[in-house]
């Protein structure tokens, strides 16, 4: 039982490797999901705090793309100077819990928690984010869709740390958008949400990446819709958002809304996100 605050990656990885038979080691960063999951009881294991590992925090341009360090907080995202393709991620950052949560919670923690309602996942999927996993065994990269494997399930092995997310090169004109539908203004778990990145050409959609969250066990890219949107102006695009093109979703009924309502809300959220990006207008 100890609290580990390594400052080097090697030390952090060493703490996780070969620990199978000892007391559990839990990786903690912002703690905003860890504590609620832990509950009220005293924790009886070792905590590996990755927030002081050198190089783990911050957003930087890497080659033609971008790197988001594994301990980067949502507030860091909000304050980073990023191109318009990240506008959806920034809008999502503002919707993660509250300022208090955004100041502590991390982007990597959000994907590791793997909630179907994780605010960060739809915009990250729309940015084609990749996840860098590091262990003493080496480094590997997975696309985000392969990293999150189910409700609260990821491909992370027990000895791995999510050291970074990578956003591949983006077209110069790419613009992002995000819409979250929830039962109140702040501190709310979404009923449905949409992250999108579009490139436009002469007022028409050239490429589209549309991701829907909270309407399936893992947020999903809407491939059929993305294809159908190519070439559309705004009016046409809105018409092309049809339930048939969203058939991959499996919205459920829960305390936040019925399946029927979720399905409708998704359609509307996509339309508003498209409008937000194409008209430069923000709709809640």
């Amino acid at each position: 039982m100890s609290y580990l605050t390594p400052t080097t990656l090697d030390a952090a990885l060493g703490a996780l490797s070969g620990r199978d038979t000892e007391a559990p080691v839990s990786v903690i960063a912002g703690g905003t999901d860890w504590f609620p999951a832990q509950g009220e009881r005293a924790y009886n294991g070792t905590l590996l705090d990755v927030t002081r590992v050198e190089g783990m925090r911050g957003v930087s341009a890497v080659g033609t793309g971008w790197r988001i360090g594994g301990a980067t907080t949502w507030s860091d995202i909000l304050h980073a100077d990023l191109p318009p393709a990240f506008d959806g991620l920034k809008l999502a950052a503002r919707e993660v819990g509250s300022v208090q949560i955004q100041n502590a919670g991390t982007v990597a923690g959000n994907i590791c928690n793997a909630s179907p309602a994780a605010d960060g996942v739809p915009p990250l999927l729309s940015l084609d984010a990749e996840v860098e996993l590091t262990s003493t065994r080496g480094v590997r990269r997975l696309v985000l869709a392969e990293f999150i494997t189910g409700v609260r399930k990821t491909a992370r092995a027990a000895d791995e740390i999510v050291t970074a997310l990578y956003i591949p090169a983006l077209s110069a004109g790419a613009r992002g958008g995000f819409t979250k539908i929830g039962g109140r203004k702040y501190l709310v778990i979404s009923v449905a949400m949409v992250g999108a990145v579009l490139t436009l050409s002469g007022g028409r959609i050239a490429t589209a990446r549309i991701t829907v969250g909270s309407a399936s066990p893992v947020a999903l890219r809407m491939g059929d819709l993305e294809n159908a949107l190519v070439g559309a102006d705004l009016a046409e695009a809105l018409e092309r958002v049809t339930p048939e093109r969203l058939a991959a979703l499996s919205p459920i009924s829960d305390i936040r809304g019925s399946a029927e309502f979720r399905g409708e809300a998704v359609v509307e959220a996509i339309r508003r996100t498209l409008t937000q990006i194409m008209k430069g207008q923000a709709h809640g």
């Binding site: 609290y3 905003t32 609620p36 705090d49 819990g97 509250s98 300022v99 208090q100 949560i101």
Partner: peptide
């Protein structure tokens, strides 16, 4: 609430508001 849902425990850590119920004290070192 001990879950970050109410914000009553908000403190400033290096000037930034956080929920004190969601931060291990060791992280404040």
């Amino acid at each position: 609430c001990n879950a970050g849902d109410c914000g009553a425990c908000t403190v400033l850590v290096d000037g930034a508001p956080v929920c004190a119920c969601l931060m291990p004290v060791q992280q404040a070192a």
